[in-house]
């Protein structure tokens, strides 16, 4: 290739650049499906929201349900447990949050949380630890109170709340 040709970045260069660009687009478009297939399938996405009938959970009871494959605590709190959670001073908390931030207004009896310890993901046990109506993670000893807030142990955060809303007083939609 002589110097003359180099100084003339004309149709030839344009053709090579255009072809290269089209090639890159082609390879990229072909590669994306191969990656995206690892994302949740339509069958998994269809379970991204679940509805749950709360009328089956008696006061004082705790049930474990599934949402996106995750274990979810649905706890029907007693007035005592609510009062205790509301009465706790924020200063005593490792991850300060008032009880009102843990539940929906007017539905204080319902505590709905992802049942994985925020330390390393074990499912804590109910009502066997330091706090009455609270949780106790057997894996590494984290203690949660009756609002699912971490009080001691290695866990850094309160039990996580999934997105949810009340469709009626007895029907909740999670996700």
């Amino acid at each position: 290739m002589t110097a003359d040709v180099k100084n003339e970045p004309t149709r030839r260069d344009f053709l090579y650049i255009a072809t290269g660009a089209v090639g890159v687009v082609g390879v990229g478009s072909a590669a994306w499906p191969l990656v995206d297939q690892m994302n949740p399938s339509a069958a998994v996405q269809a379970l991204a929201t679940v509805e749950f009938d709360l009328s089956t959970v008696e006061q004082g009871a705790l049930v474990l349900i599934k949402w996106n494959g995750l274990p979810i605590f649905v706890r029907h709190r007693t007035p005592d447990a609510i009062a205790e959670a509301q009465g706790t001073a924020l200063a005593d908390l490792k991850d300060p949050a008032p009880d009102s931030a843990r539940v929906k207004l007017g539905q204080e009896q319902w505590l709905i949380m992802i049942a994985n310890c925020t330390h390393l993901g074990c499912v804590p046990e109910f009502d066997t630890g330091v706090f009455r109506g609270g949780w106790d993670c057997k894996c590494h000893g984290s203690q949660y109170d009756s609002a699912g807030r971490v009080r001691s142990g290695p866990a850094p955060k309160n039990l996580v709340l999934p997105p949810y809303e009340f469709l009626s007083d007895t029907l909740v939609k999670i996700g």
Partner: peptide
Amino acid sequence: FLLLFAGLLYLV
């Protein structure tokens, strides 16, 4: 897309 790409490659 393939027709376009094939056409360009043919010219190249």
